[in-house]
Design a protein around this nucleic acid. Structure first.
Lengths: 240, 240
DNA sequence: GAGTGGTCTAGACCACGCA
DNA sequence: GCGTGGTCTAGACCACTCT
C-alpha cells in the first residue's frame, strides 16, 4: 500500500473546474461567475476554500473581482501571451492559433555544465531529460524553448509523442504532476545564430530570454526551461 | 466626518512589520521566522490572518516555507532585481547600491495619446503627473523609467523632492497609498537614441521594455510605468 | 435593504521533518 | 512524538455596489 498517494486539494479541484469552464466558453468574457456563497453551496465548501480557488484564478488572469458586484471573467488580450500563468502559454492566445513543433524529442542526457540553476545532488545523479520545441502562433515562430526534466520517476517519458501537446498537459495527465509555482530570470539579449534561425529573425535582433524553474506538486520535484521569445509581434504578459 | 478613512488590514500590518524586520536585518538570510502559531499568539491573530501575511512574503520572495520545518528567510541574489515584488526594485539589490536620479521632476501634463493602457474618463479628465527617472546600480545606469500618475487627490505631489527616494515609499508614507498588485507587458526591443543615451549603451542594443499598470489600495486608483532596462549585467527576476 | 467580496476568528485534521 | 506548515470548516462583521 502506497501512502504517498496523491491527494488533490478541493480548492484546486474547483479551480481546475472553473478554469476549464472559462477556457471552454461555458463562462465567457464579461460573464459573472457564481458568487462565492453560491459556489460554497453548489460544491459544499466553506468560503475560504472557494476564495482560495478564486484568488488563484485572479492571479492567473482568468477573472477580476469587484467588491459589491462579483467575479467577472476577464477578456484575454490575444496579443499577450501568458507568462506567469501556471497553465502554460497555451491558453492566452487560444489553442487554435498555437502550434508546437518538436525540434529534439525527449532524450536522456547528462546535465549541461554549468547549469543555469543550482541543482541538488539527487537531480544531478538522475540525469536530465532534454526536449527542444518551437512554438508558433498563426504559423509564425514565437518561442524557442529547451526544457530540462530531472529523470526521476517519469516512466516512458522519452518515448512519448509531444507534437502539438502542452508539456504541462502531458505532465498533468500522464504523471499527475501539476505546476504550482516557480521563478524566472528575464533578459533582453541579441539573438545568436541558432536562435535567430529558429525564430526567423535577424542575427543580433533583440529577443527575450527567460530562464525558469518550475515547481510541482511532487514534493521537491522541479524542472527547468530556457526560453527565447520573439517579441516583435507578441509581448509577454504577467500579473503580480 | 469622513467615512472613507483608511483602514489597514491586520494581515497587511504584520506583513509590513516582518518585511521591515527582514530588510533591516532583524531576521537574516537563512533565519527561521517564528512559526505561524507563535506569530498568532504574539500578535493575537488567527492563523489564516498570519498565513495571509506569510503568503504575501513568499510571493514577494522574502521567505520560503517548508512543511514540517518552518519559514526561512530567503537569500537575495544581488544580481537579480525584483520585478514583481510590490515593494519596488529597491530591496533586492540593496538600498546602498541603488541610486535614483530625477530626469524630469513630477509635472502635471495631459496624458499621452495614445496611451499604452486604456484609461477611464475620470483618469483622462484629471490629467497626468509625469515623472522620469534614471536608476543606477553601483553608479551604472540600469533602469530608465517614465511614471504616469492620475492627478487625483495627490496634494503637493509636484513639489515633492523625489531624488533617491522610492516612488513606492513616497506614496506609502505621504499619501498612504500601497501598491497591491498590477500587471505588465514585457518585450525585448532595440534601444532608441534617447534610451541608449540614458542607459549608456549602443543604439539598437537589446533592452527590456516593461509597460506596467500598478493597482493600489485606493479604490480604483492605478498608476502606470514605462520602464527600460539594460539587462547586460542585471536580470529581472520574478516569482509566480 | 439585499447581495457581494474583504477581512477575521477559533477551532479542526492532515502530511511532513526532525529528533 | 511533536511541532511545522497545508488544508478546511462554520460561522462573523464590514464596506461596497446596485436597486
Amino acid at each position: 500500500m502506497r501512502m504517498d498517494e496523491l491527494h488533490i486539494p478541493r480548492y484546486r479541484k474547483i479551480y481546475e473546474m472553473l478554469r476549464r469552464h472559462i477556457e471552454e466558453g461555458v463562462y465567457q468574457e464579461g460573464d459573472f461567475l457564481p458568487s462565492e456563497n453560491e459556489l460554497c453551496k453548489l460544491h459544499n465548501l466553506a468560503r475560504p476554500t472557494v476564495r482560495q480557488a478564486l484568488d488563484a484564478l485572479v492571479k492567473d488572469g482568468y477573472i477580476k473581482k469587484h467588491r459589491g458586484k462579483g467575479s467577472i471573467v476577464s477578456r484575454k488580450d490575444p496579443k499577450a501571451i501568458g507568462i506567469l500563468s501556471i497553465v502554460g502559454t497555451t491558453s492566452a492566445v487560444g489553442r487554435h492559433n498555437l502550434q508546437t513543433k518538436i525540434l529534439t524529442p525527449p532524450t536522456l542526457e547528462q546535465w549541461e555544465e554549468p547549469f543555469f540553476y543550482k541543482l541538488s545532488n539527487r537531480e544531478k545523479e538522475s540525469g536530465c531529460i532534454r526536449l527542444e520545441r518551437l512554438r508558433l502562433v498563426k504559423e509564425v515562430p514565437v518561442f524557442y524553448d529547451i526544457n530540462y526534466l530531472p529523470n526521476i520517476n517519469l516512466p516512458r517519458f522519452t518515448s512519448r509523442k509531444m507534437e502539438n501537446k502542452s508539456l504541462f498537459e502531458v505532465l498533468r495527465k500522464n504523471y499527475k504532476i501539476d505546476v504550482i509555482g516557480g521563478d524566472q530570470r528575464i533578459r533582453a539579449i541579441p539573438a545568436k545564430e541558432k536562435v535567430a534561425r529558429y525564430l526567423q529573425i535577424a542575427e543580433g535582433a533583440p529577443v527575450l530570454h527567460l530562464q525558469r524553474k518550475l515547481e510541482t506538486n511532487r514534493n521537491g520535484y522541479c524542472f527547468y526551461s530556457s526560453l527565447y521569445c520573439n517579441t516583435e509581434e507578441y509581448s509577454l504578459y504577467g500579473k503580480f
